[in-house]
Write a protein that binds this DNA or RNA. Structure first.
Lengths: 196, 196
DNA sequence: TACAATAGTGAACGATCGTTCACTTTTCAA
DNA sequence: TTGAAAAGTGAACGATCGTTCACTATTGTA
């Protein structure tokens, strides 16, 4: 029985499964078992190829690490209107990790639960999560977490001729011009609503 | 000069930095260099402790892998109203990874860009991203990606006495009762809006 | 102050890793 | 169909890993 040689797609799929299941790359022994190799050199060659194609990365110490392309879990397809493509096209979709997609500075990024409806017309509802980056200068029309009158809320940040203004996205509330102090907790980089 | 021994927090911080920078755990040599150890046994003991505390995991093959607790990048704080806690309290915040927080079945989960305003009253705007899980039975009031009259859109899924109904969240449009066929592409598990 | 718990040192060893060299088999296109 | 490129085999070797055992230093506390 001529043991079937794996296709490239099969190899990639098996490797992805391993990485997802173990949160690490397989070792030489494990890669050989996974792919049905008998020689560790085959594993070596496979690593070389995967490195060349950008699925794994070799750092300064010469050790391998998975790239988002391999580790990522999310396939980014087109638009809702375009619907779901065929499985073959799915294979071609870009794979990414939400963390890397949304977070620039991990050490300065936080997740807060939204309370209040001050930004509801911007589609930010109570119970939503906001991904907030601290320690950055807000630009005009950025949504910020700000402390106003000893109370923290979400507002649009606007700097005009008269100074800084904080605008709600809700007709029930009025724009605010901070008089004494203005504390900006951080800038909202993303909004996340989780169902179920 | 009595080389300063590192505190536990310092060790954790250094390890986190390494993992973020390299996308892998340090080896023994690297861990020794990172922590200022001279004996590989110290590294061994540190791994043992990290395993016991759940920062790394030892799988069936006896190999170490980082857990979300170590690899995760997002600190989950309280609510917007509560504002930002002190740095000391921040240290205690739960660290999580967005991928693991939002994605249950990686192989069946996709990201689509929203087109159209059929769900705008549910806070889903054109340009938002929806995280869609395929191959699950939608429950009542789930938001689904459905094919209606050869067109894909987002709708609430509702099953009543008369059968299945698809409701928009926009007064401009009307509920739909599919007559011939109904294709459900998937169930919306999360909505993501990215700024900037 | 003393003493137990915690943290680190140092040597040793078999297993695995990462790589090189030389050779064979399979695939695919001219 | 044939010949080159791609893929796999097999042996070998120094480096690192993962672990054990025995010993020493530091720290917090009864």
């Amino acid at each position: 029985m001529p043991r079937r040689r794996l296709t490239w797609n099969d190899k990639l799929r098996r490797l992805r499964e391993f990485v997802r299941a173990h949160d690490r790359l397989p070792g030489y022994q494990e890669l050989m078992a996974l792919m049905g190799f008998r020689s560790s050199h085959s594993a070596f060659r496979l690593w070389t190829r995967l490195t060349r194609l950008g699925y794994v990365r070799k750092d300064a110490a010469g050790k391998l690490a998975p790239t988002p392309r391999l580790r990522g879990t999310l396939r980014m397809l087109g638009t809702v209107a375009a619907g779901f493509p065929s499985p073959a096209e799915e294979e071609l979709a870009d794979i990414l990790s939400l963390d890397e997609f949304l977070i620039r500075r991990p050490e300065a990024t936080f997740l807060l639960t939204v309370t209040g409806d001050s930004m509801i017309e911007a589609g930010i509802h109570p119970g939503d999560l906001v991904l907030v980056e601290r320690g950055v200068q807000p630009k005009n029309n950025d949504i910020v977490v700000a402390q106003v009158d000893d109370e923290w809320t979400l507002k649009y940040f606007i700097r005009d001729e008269e100074g800084v203004r904080l605008d709600p996205a809700n007709r029930k509330y009025s724009p605010i011009r901070p008089r004494r102090s203005l504390v900006i907790g951080g800038v909202v980089r993303a909004v996340i609503r989780k169902y179920g």
